[in-house]
Design a protein around this nucleic acid. Structure first.
Lengths: 219, 219
DNA sequence: CCTACCGATCGGTAGG
DNA sequence: CCTACCGATCGGTAGG
């Protein structure tokens, strides 16, 4: 699908994760997953309320009403995308923290995981951040709770590092917001056809974050 | 109007820039400006396509169709908001660069101006970044051109500083994107009722940016 | 998987 | 500034 790079304005053709309109040689279709995938790209490029069921169906070679044999509602698609994104982010963050190390290493790890996800899954991340207010209750409140939990880890580690005199920064709060937001921004401009891989970018950003906090690499 | 802080989930009451529904003691209304102001808050909180003309009218105590005595279309409202935002950002950036100084001072200045605007005018900034794809041509292309110009200044200064060995960073590109995005993020969480002023936050972020680039304060 | 169609909503116009 | 209303579009249902 054609997507525009935020900074260059260039349009890039990005293949879908699943074969589109390939009714043959695909075995038993996971229609539900295909629908989610098509909806994801449309939500990311033209927004949730800007996307019609007919457009989603068109991606799979069917009419809008036919989608309802596989899904319950348009809202369900958004809920699955956003909860899937937050669950995966939290899962990766917990795994990173479980590896231990000193506070610089742990902070570096959760920054890297944060950035890597936002590059690898830029559509999920973009939609997950942008369309939260399109979620109906109680889903919206649930996601906001999960996000607060996710974001608090950054601030906690900055505070911990400052308590140990390993970081020198004027404010735990603003610097943790800055680190979070620069990672979120990646989902708006990352180009998978470009020369940098998600894990290279993750390493670069982890270094930028540590330097911003006034720490050198923790190893 | 009730707005939600991205990180805390708290709702804050924010007075509009112009007196709402105050038909008396307001002198000759600038209806056009009042409509823009009401539309801005609605676009920021529920999105451009999620906002109806009836809702905008309701903010001013009138019906949707009555708005068309003062404006041409809903699209016109968005165009004015977004072009006004980009023009002001570029104006402030040029003024900052015109003050001169070494590359550290100039970079610090454009970061401060960037962050200050995104805190002071968080709604304009938020809408300006989020709703670009809601703009019809040729407005969208025009805004993208202006944004490219605005963003290129950051990268140019990072390159210049690195050429002079004043900055040490692995990539001009990623670090300038990081600086830009952490400033843009401010518009999503800044709370004018909070304890930090836009210019304090601007100074803090300028320091974070310089430290991220491996430079100490340039003065 | 389809067509036909519903109820609701929207931006905008007509004509005061 | 209003009401009445238009043409179009939308998510979703009925009934094959």
């Amino acid at each position: 699908m054609a997507v525009r790079n935020r900074l260059t304005g260039e349009r890039t053709h990005v293949p879908s994760a699943v074969g589109r309109r390939s009714r043959v040689a695909s075995g038993p279709h996971d229609r539900h997953h295909e629908i989610i995938d098509a909806a994801l790209e449309l939500f990311a490029t033209i927004g949730y309320s800007g996307t019609t069921m007919a457009q989603i169906g068109d991606r799979l070679g069917m009419r809008g009403p036919s989608l309802y044999k596989h899904i319950a509602s348009k809202q369900e698609l958004l809920v699955e995308i956003v909860t899937g994104m937050m669950d995966e982010l939290l899962r990766r963050q917990r795994a990173a923290l479980a590896e231990g190390g000193d506070v610089r290493q742990r902070l570096s790890s959760i920054v890297a995981v944060h950035v890597q996800y936002h590059a690898e899954h830029r559509y999920e991340a973009f939609v997950g951040h942008r369309e939260i207010d399109s979620l109906e209750e109680p889903h919206r409140s649930h996601i906001l709770d999960l996000r607060r939990e996710y974001e608090s880890r950054f601030r906690e580690l900055v505070q911990e590092g400052r308590g140990l005199d390993l970081f020198r920064t004027s404010s735990d709060r603003w610097s943790s917001y800055a680190i979070l937001d620069m990672g979120i921004g990646v989902s708006a401009w990352y180009n998978p056809s470009g020369s940098v891989t998600p894990d290279e970018l993750a390493a670069t950003y982890a270094e930028l974050a540590l330097r911003m906090l006034g720490a050198e690499r923790g190893d």
